[in-house]
Amino acid sequence: MSLREEVLTRVKALLKDRRVDGVLGLSLFEKEPVPCLFEDPFDVDALVIEPKWLLAKLAMNILKTAPQEYRLGLVCRGCDDRAVTELAKRNQLDRNRLTLLGIPCTAEQARKCLCSTPYPREIVAGERVEGMYPMNDEQAQLFLTGSMEERMKRWARELNRCIKCYGCRNVCPICVCIPCKLEDDLWVKRGHIPADMVSYHLIRAFHLSDTCVSCAGCTDTCPVNIPLMLLQVSMRETLKSQYAYEPGLDPERVSPVLTEQEKGEGTLFQEPAWIDSLRGGS
């Protein structure tokens, strides 16, 4: 049985057994994929699983507007799974109302997204492929290394193109604020492109520093091809090396930038090396 058929069988069973009221996935409409909320098992034959299409935010919005007792199934990939975890941690969706049908990404998809974990925690079918280390990617290296001046020039060239479509924010499964700081004249000057785009992208990137699930949605949707997800790489590496924390992997663990001080840290017994950034000898 192909991966699609296995998912299809599962979705049908879920709907038939009334374990969920609807399943969010992709369906073919005039030969092309669109998101679809399947509520009738007979419609499920139109279900497809490609291409990779972020659905976590849609699922969140469905649950937010649906009646309290509505239960939803979601055909999801690794990034959707992590996004659901992060959204649940931030009270944006009720994990008990959501049944995940996890499928793994292909090696090629993982490479495209520079994804280190291209599979959900539980998969219903298919084979996992190993993820990749973002810094091994040539383009990523180009953007993340070099002297400060080189980096500045490279990013200036990229960010200067921004047309302020808000697409990166709109597709981001984690960006849920209404209103959003990026619409606030205080933080990002209104009515100009790209005048304040630096604030826009740095503030946006930092807001996601401990929540970004590396879905690559921002890069994919950017009409002017800014490699936005590369802004996250170094912060993610820092979180990983300093706190062994990766967003979306552990539903129980609170982000280290929000938690109480951990044992030993900042006390007599262990002092972080970065007490004073000048003394650090950089």
Partner: peptide, 12 residues
């Protein structure tokens, strides 16, 4: 009206 209920403030 603006609060999303994310709980960051509660955590910190």
């Amino acid at each position: 009206e603006a609060c999303t209920g994310c709980g960051n403030c509660v955590a910190v």
